[in-house]
Amino acid sequence: MLAPAVLGLALFFVYPLLASIYYSFTRYNLVSDPQWIGLRNYQYLFADDPNVWQAAGNTLWFVAVMVPVKLVFAFAIAGLLTRAKTATGLWRTLYYLPALVPPVASVVTFVFLFNPGTGPVNLILKAFGIDGPLWFNDPALAKPSLLLLGIWVTGDVMIIFLAGLLDVPRDLYEASGLDGANGVQKLWYITLPTIVPVLLFSLVTGIIAALQFFTEASVASSVASGKVSIGEGAGAGFGYPENSLLTYTQWLYIRGFSNYQLGYASALAVLLFVVAAVFLTLLLRRFSAFTPDEATR
């Protein structure tokens, strides 16, 4: 019963993990055989690569800004939704729906909305006499524009929080109300302790997801640049404007699958593994669902 899964883990997890480490010490372009070059790839990665640190910095921005902002926003909406007494189902569906929109469609939508020339957002700003910014075409605003998109599609996290909030026993609130606790105190002493595990879980899984942030950023770049890639390929469109949306995983894609420097891409992968492993360890230590003990009850 387990054999297929074990084979799957061996073929698609253990082997490639080890092979990535091996390839990271080679020069390999898939056409000729891998050629051992020792630490050269790592030397280039840490000393010479012109874009890797900017890419890592962009990814870090999404980890450090996007993840918390999304969580706070999802938490606030979930909190509001617990208060709604009428048409609860309608409200929940409304706020959840954007999370359903396929990511590529949502990015195309936002690049269109914030398109500086004829996009509705700038048209509306203009009606108020405001000269709208360049949004996805401005290196300083491209990431914040994606953050707005992130907030729009935060519904799945919101649902998790909502379920957690509804789990908080009602009588606790009533009792504390009788005790004269105000809203802030209720939030701090009752709501948060009950929902902290959920929050932490969402935070760490959010961070791991942000480390691999790829789709939204790359699609936003290629759609916003409006450039026709006649003959270069997908990788050439990544990062626009001025590499402000170039994330670490996109850089890995470019080196690996646009430039076909698979050895160097593997070195980038190994570094990503090391960073992800830190968060993984944190997650594994902290959360009971991920420890196998329950299995053999």
């Binding site: 398109n115 500086p116 020339g117 004829t118 360049l134 075409n137 401005d138 409006g226 450039k227 026709v228």
Partner: peptide, 10 residues
């Protein structure tokens, strides 16, 4: 930049 962003595809 603003002018270019509003132009059609090449």
């Amino acid at each position: 930049q603003k002018f270019s962003a509003g132009l059609g595809q090449e």
